[in-house]
Design a protein around this nucleic acid. Structure first.
Lengths: 339, 339
DNA sequence: CCGCAATGGTAAAGCGGTTTCGCATCTGAC
DNA sequence: GTCAGATGCGAAACCGCTTTACCATTGCGG
């Protein structure tokens, strides 16, 4: 129905060679892109291969050529983090390129389990390694020198700046959010975000500042640092108000904070978006299923799945530029900023 | 820091054999579990292997033994569905068992792309195939006869009942939700759910009925079928009220419907949970990040990641029981039912 | 025409293990 | 003391393809 499975025995390269009337080696070269073979022969072999429905035994091919077709993936607590869409993206991209993924989950800080994973990966003759972090909160120790194959860091920075890294463009995210608020008419924009130690938070703030400068606006109130949770977001509102700042919009470091602010505003009688427009980051409402009508927030989507895809694809490229590369965030508009 | 990588060249079995003073064949047999080898020799070889830090080249081993160490995974639109946690669980489980995952994403209904994926998988000499569906809405066509390796269906039923299937226990989910409402004091429980065609919806309803029967209660009002969306959930409330039913709780087929009902109740001046207690299914609020305080709903978590793990693990078992197997759902209590 | 380079193709050597098969050696029974 | 059977080990085949020699043509300039 779906596929007429090959009848009987599997077709070997030797069969193709026999049918085409050439030697094994010639057949191999004809099918792979070697020069030093006439076009006529190449066509003949190709025809024979097509007719026999030849599919090379990937395992044997790997073995002979030294490439396993397997990419190692090291995730940092993939279970309950934002790394999940990244991992999904990476795995799908690898599949698109016919590469298998050997995924080890662990905690970068548990060096014992980590060591075990690393050794397992080394033994597997993987063709490349993808290290998937947990956002851009900190810097991860570089593992590159442990491997002879390309290593890419996704969703985390490596301690070695010459490593290949793929990160969400947090700075641009901050800019997009802020520009959106400005274009909606806001002129007094405050900022409530995650921990001061978070690199991502820092970059988002920079992006906000860029946008403000471009628009000739001044920041309003102190930047309120906290953690990424809903409750903390709610409490931060009080803090912001007590600072005496007068604001008509808040750029929230992430969606949880923004949701906390929605609660807090409701409690304080502040109308959203009429009195205060809110924008968050992560688009986590859209992460699972994006159904119209289920959205509360305007948010910047960091395109994490795309990030995973980019990172995975980088491993198979010939020319790999060191340093940071970015996925491009997109703005998703919801009721919290729509006036 | 993390690992002191083996110095210099990789250790081959021949090295081990040389050090142990035995032949290649003997070394191989000693390390794998062959009988016909003396315990003394076995120990000697093992010691040598340990000392040299020998790790067999997985690729060569695969090639010789015929097992690739790769499991094929066929997902149905993994991008934007509930299949994502299932896929993550499967991939992590495979990693735990040192198996690589070759993931192809597609639409089961697009037979052309599907055929391509299947052929690719067949060529890869995969050791098993995991078919990941998109819930238990319909029945998927069985692919088992296309492969000579074990095939497991996860998160979907196969058209062949003798296939190995892993599904969420939707019936138990319905029972858990209903029993929770009953234990909270509700006696008049209505039901608003997804499409009549959905197998999952049907089972959840059955589970609800089981619990009602056990408690000596009668169903209240007609079962309202619709789709799984928030808006539709909201509209269904009107429909339920117009039916004339008097209810003090609603078991919602999923969380989106439940969220729609929360909106609709608020608009209609019905207090949740005081006037009407609500329970949903999916626990999608907890799917991304479960932070205290960010929860609105009581919901039954279908444990989809665990489901993926179970399915993946089944491929490597020796004895595979045909038919349906279940992951056990858990109840997560939130404000929507807490009185 | 001869020699050399370029070209098309083949035979054979891996790749790094596992597994079969056969030869020793050792054991124990008669 | 012999001989059958069990046991331990090593030589060699093998998995299916890639790749590196190397040989045989052909083409061309001198």
């Amino acid at each position: 129905m779906l596929v007429s499975v090959a009848s009987g025995r599997t077709v070997r390269l030797s069969d193709v060679a026999a049918v085409a009337g050439v030697s094994l080696a010639t057949a191999s070269k004809a099918l792979n892109g070697s020069t030093r073979i006439s076009q006529a022969t190449r066509d003949r072999v190709q025809a024979a291969a097509d007719r026999l429905d030849f599919r090379p035994d990937a395992l044997a091919r790997s073995f002979a050529s030294g490439r396993s077709g397997i990419i190692g993936v090291l995730t940092h607590r993939a279970k309950n983090t934002f790394a999940r869409p990244v991992t999904i993206g990476a795995v799908l991209q690898l599949g698109d390129q016919n590469q298998a993924a050997l995924v080890y989950d662990g905690d970068v800080n548990e060096s014992k389990a980590m060591a075990h994973s690393l050794r397992e990966l080394q033994a597997r003759r993987i063709d490349g390694l993808l290290v998937i972090g947990d956002g851009h909160e900190h810097v991860s120790p570089s593992l590159t020198h442990h491997f002879e194959v390309p290593v890419t860091y996704v969703f985390t920075a490596s301690s070695d700046e010459s490593d290949v890294m793929y990160l969400p463009d947090n700075r641009l995210a901050g800019r997009l959010a802020t520009e959106h608020l400005i274009s909606g008419g806001s002129t007094r924009i405050a900022h409530i975000t995650g921990p001061r130690s978070s690199i991502a938070a820092g970059r988002r703030k920079e992006g906000m500042r860029d946008a403000l400068v471009d628009a000739g606006l001044e920041p309003v109130g102190p930047v309120i640092y906290g953690d990424w949770t809903r409750q903390r977001g709610a409490r931060s509102l009080t803090e912001l108000i007590e600072s005496g700042a007068k604001f008509d919009a808040i750029f929230c470091g992430n969606d949880h904070i923004a949701l906390g602010l929605i609660d807090a505003c409701a409690a304080a009688g502040i109308r959203v978006p009429d009195d205060v427009a809110l924008v968050g980051v992560d688009n986590w409402e859209g992460t699972v299923v994006d159904q119209p009508g289920s959205r509360q927030l305007t948010s910047v989507d960091l395109e994490l799945m795309e990030l995973g895809r980019l990172g995975a694809a980088s491993l198979l490229m010939n020319e790999r530029a060191p340093g940071e590369h970015y996925s491009v965030p997109t703005l998703v508009v919801g009721p919290s900023s729509r006036r």
